[in-house]
Amino acid sequence: MELLNALVTLANFVLIPATAYGAQLALGALGVTLIYGILRFSNFAHGDTMAFGTMVTVLGTWWLQARGIGLGPLPTALLALPLGIALTALLLLGTDRLVYRFYREQRVKPVILVIVSMGVMFILNGLVRFIIGPDDQRFADGERFIISAREFKAMTGLDEGLAIRTTQGLTIVTAVIVVGLLFWFLSHTRTGKSMRAFSDNEDLALLSGINPERVVAITWIIVAALATIAGVLYGLDKSFKPFTYFQLLLPIFAAAIVGGLGNPLGAIAGGFIVAYSEVTITYAWKKVLGYLAPEGLAPDGLVQLLSTDYKFAVSFVILVIVLLFRPTGLFRGKAV
């Protein structure tokens, strides 16, 4: 019984939230890693691209909600998501045309592209704050829980409850579908294959008649979809605040680098590694240990390794360790 209670507490406070968070990070890191593979630079504007896509979706959700259109138990945001993806794709294609293409044709050093992406980041950041303001916005609706803690307790008779929020379930299901689609696209379609070829060896790809501009455009569209979905899922799960999305840049980059920049499989693994480390290290283990420890030996303190204010330090430490010991990442990305 004690063991079961400990396991349920662990699942409730660590495993489920970390899995949802990991899925969100993985989707974000996939976007970063795709841009790195095809366009060969670290896109600092990615966090704010996520914020932009989410903002459009939030506005669409509010419009739908005002008209009384909803999805019943599921969040209305899912209906507004295609709009968010479409506008974000237009935005990214527009910035590519106006900003990045010029530098691509000049074949500048990657660091220049990074600086340029920082400029784009601030424009997007300003745009989002200008339109929706810098404050927290909640836009989740529908059923709140798949299983609430009380139902779970009544069902199993345990002391501890296990709550699975709709948004957490939705995040995991969506992430699985999106990742499946992406990998199918990359390995089974002609366009996907040409993207991989372009990423592996640009010169050879050009020689075999692949149109680079088309590959780049398709990459941006996929990235827009990934970023918007990741942003909306994160916003549904927590809340939407432009500055938080800027701060997500660090865990997302950490995830992409841990897995190996340019390697999609690595980005997914990296997302979960970062999320699990962050949640386990900032979780207060008092309750779980209380169930596991023998009578009288239960810990007095919170047994929290780091306060949640330092959660970014966890991503950072992971990043430093990877850079020190294996700069190409766990899955052998292309960057050194």
């Binding site: 630079f41 670290s42 600092f44 990657p110 660091v111 990074v114 950490a254 680098i257 960057a335 050194v336």
Partner: peptide
């Protein structure tokens, strides 16, 4: 390492 890594760090 790559120049981007310094930026991220």
């Amino acid at each position: 390492l790559r120049s981007d890594y310094l930026a991220i760090a």
